[in-house]
Design a binder for these strands. Structure first.
Lengths: 203, 203
DNA sequence: ACCTGAACACCGTTCAAGT
DNA sequence: ACCTGAACACCGTTCAAGT
């Protein structure tokens, strides 16, 4: 499993194929299926391995629950940002490793500390983690491939050129659509989510 | 392009390969590269085609801006729910077709009608669309493959079994983690996002 | 100039056969 | 019982060669 982590870190998840990993371990690809059922299970194992490294301040002053949430969610998002294609995989994975359960448990605990009703807390954790994963999967494309950068530029150009007759609201919002830095937008989004989770009652 | 849509609708995006589409059009795969640059561009074109069908109530009473947002976002999410693997593709695509721009413009208009400051509106549209796309990509896996259902069950089992010592908060929230129906959770999430976007000022 | 057959360089997964 | 070579059934993309 360390070999898999190394390949991912050094060459990216794209290059971590069953055949490549098998070659690294001096065997045939069929042998890997003794340890994992399929590619998805390998990705799940990698995620849990990575999650072992994020700091979970399970204890701490109850009053700082909001900062705790933001810190953990930022760490989670930044972690996946470094492995965008893993994030893409995680989105369809429903991870279930011990470190992922620990992460869920900690987030739930912080929302509980904030006095958020149980249902909102449970649904909110889902929303928060989905946002982190999706943000990494989406934004993280930058730099991973040349085409992705090209597409980003193509969209910016289109938005620049979007005629004020056809798209009057885009025209008005033009300057804000790509404004702000990644961290600024992430911290705003986390604020939106947490505020909404705390104040919006379910059903 | 109609052939591509038909294959996707009848057999799923997974089966819509360059080779399969070329065969359908009685030619070799190389010929497709005259019309699209790559697979991503084909997916982008498909998304824009689908978006042509969603109703955009651009006009209407200004006071109903919130309902308008919820209606459009629900339609967008439901649309992608039927094509989960397209949703996965869209997440990394930064779509730029005319119908996608129209969707952005309409959402911006509704947030403007709600008196949301320009920056919050612009960033908020991003957040809303990302949520819709990610939800479809994530939940939509159900039924598309047998393994995905199995993984869902595996997670439910793990959460059921999660010991109260190791994961006390999961233990307490157990009954709520999988509670509610898809539509209930979607409408709650949209409420969270809209409330948060309206009330959380950027920077 | 426009189109495409055939090849390049790969995939994940299965299974019969070996140890 | 455990492991794996070789095969199955595919991919997206490129490019030299034809029309």
């Amino acid at each position: 499993m360390t070999a898999a982590l190394r390949i991912m870190r050094e060459e990216g998840l794209e290059r971590l194929t069953m055949r490549r990993l098998a070659a690294e371990l001096d065997t045939g690809p069929a042998s890997l299926y003794v340890y994992v059922q399929n590619m998805a299970e390998l990705h799940a194992a990698l995620l849990d391995e990575l999650l072992a490294d994020i700091a979970l301040p399970h204890t701490g002053p109850v009053a700082r629950w909001r900062d705790g949430l933001i810190d953990i969610m930022t760490a989670y998002t930044v972690l996946l940002f470094q492995h965008p294609s893993l994030a893409r995989s995680v989105l369809t994975l429903r991870p279930s490793g011990p470190n992922y359960l620990r992460l869920i448990d900690t987030l739930l605990g912080l929302l509980n500390a904030g006095g958020v009703p149980q249902r909102q807390a449970a649904w909110g954790v889902n929303l928060l983690l989905q946002h982190g994963t999706a943000t990494a999967a989406e934004q993280g494309t930058r730099g991973e491939s040349v085409e992705a950068d090209g597409e980003q530029l193509a969209l910016m150009w289109l938005v620049e050129e979007a005629s004020s007759e056809d798209y009057p609201n885009i025209d008005r919002a033009r300057s804000e659509i790509f404004s702000g830095t990644g961290p600024e937008r992430l911290s705003w989004a986390l604020g939106v989510l947490i505020d909404g989770i705390v104040t919006t009652s379910a059903l």
